[in-house]
């Protein structure tokens, strides 16, 4: 009688713990990744429709983001310092991932100067960094439909040569997941090693969460 009582009491304590562990293992989502600099969006953000053009002159909508990871930087070709820095940095991110045999995220350079940056201008510009980089431009209203959803800011500022102008713009890099949703943000300062590691951590977490 006594023996049965002890067994029952132990069982009463252990069963809920085992049940909780089983629940965690079977239905619990994996823990969000430990990130070095990226900001993860949980849940990811679905994008409302936008319609832009890539450097081949093809339509670039949210469907073009589906099926692969994408890293997007927003800038303009009249920008001689920040933009080549960022694209050179993203090229290094790709080289680091390539050296590890990882599939590469697509790099998008979205022009926030649609008046001066045509698809032709962008084709030569992005191709210099990597043949796989995609340049994107479009009408200002459509561009804003995308940037506003991402918290990307841009605006003209006086300066430049002659009657030209400068464009102030967010320096963040946006990560889209293969569903085409806004998944994470890499703020400045940008370090290629850290971005590559954070990207892999986010991707592995995303895949394990499916």
């Amino acid at each position: 009688m006594m023996k049965i009582n002890v067994t029952t009491r132990v069982a009463r304590r252990i069963i809920p713990v085992l049940a909780a562990l089983w629940l965690l293992a079977s239905c619990g989502a994996p823990q969000p990744p430990q990130l070095e600099g990226a900001t993860l969006l949980q849940p990811d953000r679905r994008l409302a429709e936008f319609s832009l053009v890539d450097h081949h002159g093809e339509a670039f909508t949210q469907d073009a983001l589906k099926g692969h990871w994408s890293l997007a930087f927003f800038g303009y070709t009249h920008c001689p310092d920040v933009c080549p820095n960022a694209l050179g940095m993203l090229k290094r991110v790709q080289s680091l991932l390539e050296a590890r045999g990882e599939p590469l995220p697509r790099v998008l350079f979205v022009s926030v100067d649609p008046e001066r940056d045509t698809p032709q201008t962008l084709a030569a510009y992005v191709g210099y960094f990597h043949p796989s980089f995609v340049g994107i431009t479009g009408q200002d209203a459509q561009l804003q439909r995308l940037t506003r959803q991402l918290g990307i800011l841009y605006g003209r500022a006086p300066g430049g040569e002659g009657d030209g102008y400068l464009v102030d713009h967010s320096a963040a890099i946006i990560l889209f997941n293969p569903e085409g949703h806004y998944q994470a943000l890499f703020n400045v300062p940008h370090d290629p090693q850290r971005i590559a590691r954070d990207f892999l951590a986010i991707r592995d977490w995303y895949e394990a969460s499916r």
Partner: peptide
């Protein structure tokens, strides 16, 4: 070069600005 300008890139609140 037709001209050379001295600029500074400043990044504040995540926004990069180029100033003469």
């Amino acid at each position: 070069f037709a001209h050379v300008m001295m600029h500074r890139t400043e990044t504040r609140d995540g926004v990069a600005r180029m100033r003469h």
